[in-house]
Amino acid sequence: MSRAETVVGAAEVRVSRGPSPLWTLGLLRNEIGMTFRRRRTLVLLAVLALVPVLVGIAIRVQTEDGGARGGPAFISLVTNNGLFLVFTSLAATLPVFLPMALGVVAGDAIAGEAGAGTLRYLLVAPAGRTRLLLVKYASTLVFCLVATLVVATSALAVGALLFGLGEVTLLSGTTVPLAEGLLRALAVAGVVALSLIGVAALGLFVSTLTGSGIAAMAMTVGVVITLQILNTIPQLHAVQPYLFPHYWLSFADLLRDPVYWDDIRRNLGLQAVYALVFGSAAWARFTTRDITA
């Protein structure tokens, strides 16, 4: 009996000292650490890092026999300055590879935990449903940023190796020093990462709907691809400005002098709306759902 009292007493002392508000960040740190230690994440990042290598080699091979033959705006510029491989690679990965990788991570966020049964233990820990959702969204956003930086860094390295670096001639014709070019490349990577916050919220919402991680991943990627296709059908011109991929390639406007902000602003505004709408939907769904898995 006296033993019982000491145990309970000790527990109460601990509770009454009160948890520090910072402790709540422990789960976020754990989640980010877990995300980037998973082999799946590392494979996704490795594939993303490989894209600039392939693009760089392709351009190198193509330009060796007869020089640039038109092609997308960036490609002819890449041969003059390796830095442009960063923009080319981001433009190549943003429509498909980046959202797909993100769809895997975001779609699996809640559904994967539900499927493995670990969700119930996190919730009785108690992680708190809103807190867990915020942690999942935050770690997904960190993944967006890291994935974008992986593409950019890999592209910069490959570009420097194959084509060399130098002064940067912007799309508007102005020439700026390499340092400013690098700064603009960093800004481009930032905008690309922010372009993905809408997809991230969509993926998280889909993830709260099902108990199967695979189903959530497939559905998220499916929605992204469908919207991309809709975005190219001329008859749907009226709705296209409301589709989240519509302004994705506006990041190129950062390479003008002066920077042309309108479409970038529209892009970020649209992403914020998507993040808000799907974030709220995910919250409404997740905080009221019966956890039976």
Partner: peptide
Amino acid sequence: IEGPALYGFLTGRANLLRYDAADPTADP
């Protein structure tokens, strides 16, 4: 509840560290 549920790709210790981190009142 209804049997254990674990992260297969984490070690036993890492599993417990995660569940403990999920509790905002647990002292890190």
